[in-house]
Simulated scan of single mutants.
Amino acid sequence: MTKLTRRALLAAPALLAASPALAFPDRSLRIVSGFPPGGTNDIVARALAAPLATVLGQPVVVENRPGAGGGVGAAAVARAAPDGHTLYLGIVDTQSINPLTYRRLAYDPERDFAPISLVTNVPFAMIAGPARPQITDMASLIAAAKAAPGQLTYASWGVGSTPHLAFLRLAQREGIDMLHVPFGGPPAAVLSMMNGQVDVMMLGAGNAESFARDARIRVIATVAPERLELLPQVPTLKEQGFDMPMGLWQALYAPARTPEPILARLTAATHEAMRAPSFIEVMRTQGAKPAPTSPSDLLALQRAEREAYGSVVRSLNLVLD
């Protein structure tokens, strides 16, 4: 008996080396968000972190690394050890659009990351601030832009971001000229709007609904196939004659070269975490639902979105250094 036990003990390190998932996770994990606290990406990351910690049996902390349209955080995770303990909550901007708009990108969305799962798709809402009380719907927004070319201001969380591209498409379609004001993240942009310094912007529906409780902010449209349960009184863009199917998806990634057994463990754990009532409730407050996928389906989505946005970026000749 003693002989067998010693043999088993001697074999254990080799078994663990052959199956890294058996020892994973052996310490706390971190989910890096490429945007400041308080925005949609941060909300989704923190909503996922708590149930994921329960499933994995280790603490999961959220680390905000804002900058360069989410690229600072993405680059940090791309350089992290590929052991599954550092994850990235990417969005359509970081994984599909940035490679199209940045001439020199500090990371490659496909080469440097291993997909785990899509997490959710948060619909956008169009909001207007106190500086333009006459803007109550899309028609009045267009009218205000036409009345004063180049003076209506719109905010985004960066040049080349999804809101920026959405407004460029709108301007191109309607033949209007608006002034883009980029910020480091949604909270700073909304604060500027509430102070009357920016006129309109697009924002995740959950954040838009919460800010609209302050009478100074008005939600004038939602970007969704049908009216949102969160904002039932607000007509969609499509209802108002504008068909721009843009959303803000979030997805979980690990550094490339993370062992397959660990990736499989992370995918299963993420899907289980997304079934937690606490996560589902937070998604409801964002006008969204959990959206678990396989890693291959996430990669296919990422590529399809890059192709779809590519035509927009090329038509606008939008290239950043």
Rank of each mutant, 00 (worst) to 15 (best):
Y253S: 05
G206S: 13
R213K: 15
I220D: 05
A256N: 02
W249A: 06
I262Q: 01
P235L: 01
P232Q: 04
I220L: 02
V223F: 07
L248Q: 08
P225Q: 08
T236R: 04
G247P: 04
A208L: 08
G206M: 13
L252N: 04
E209D: 10
D243W: 11
E209I: 01
P245C: 10
G206P: 11
I220K: 10
A208P: 09
L263T: 00
A254I: 03
R218D: 11
A224T: 03
T258R: 00
P255R: 01
R257A: 13
T236N: 09
Y253L: 11
E239R: 01
R218L: 13
E260P: 00
G247I: 03
A224C: 05
A264K: 07
A212C: 12
L228M: 07
P245G: 12
M246L: 13
R227I: 04
A212E: 03
T236K: 10
S210T: 15
G241P: 01
A254V: 00
P232W: 11
P261I: 04
R227E: 09
E239I: 02
I217R: 09
G241T: 11
A208N: 02
E239Q: 08
Q250N: 15
P259F: 05
Q250I: 01
P261W: 02
G206V: 11
A205L: 04
R216M: 08
A256Y: 01
P261R: 06
R218Q: 14
D243I: 10
R227A: 07
V234N: 10
G247T: 10
P235Y: 00
A251W: 04
R213A: 14
E229L: 08
A264T: 04
A251I: 11
K238F: 09
G206K: 09
A254N: 00
P235A: 10
E260R: 02
F242Y: 14
L231N: 03
D243T: 05
T222Q: 03
P261A: 07
P232E: 03
A212Q: 07
Y253K: 04
F242T: 13
Q233A: 15
P235W: 06
Y253W: 13
G204H: 09
R216S: 15
P259H: 11
P259S: 04
R227H: 05
A205D: 10
G247H: 06
P259T: 08
L252D: 03
Q240Y: 06
V234A: 09
D243N: 13
E209T: 07
I262S: 11
D214Q: 15
L263E: 02
R216L: 10
R213Y: 10
K238A: 14
Q233Y: 04
T236E: 06
G247N: 08
L252E: 01
L228H: 05
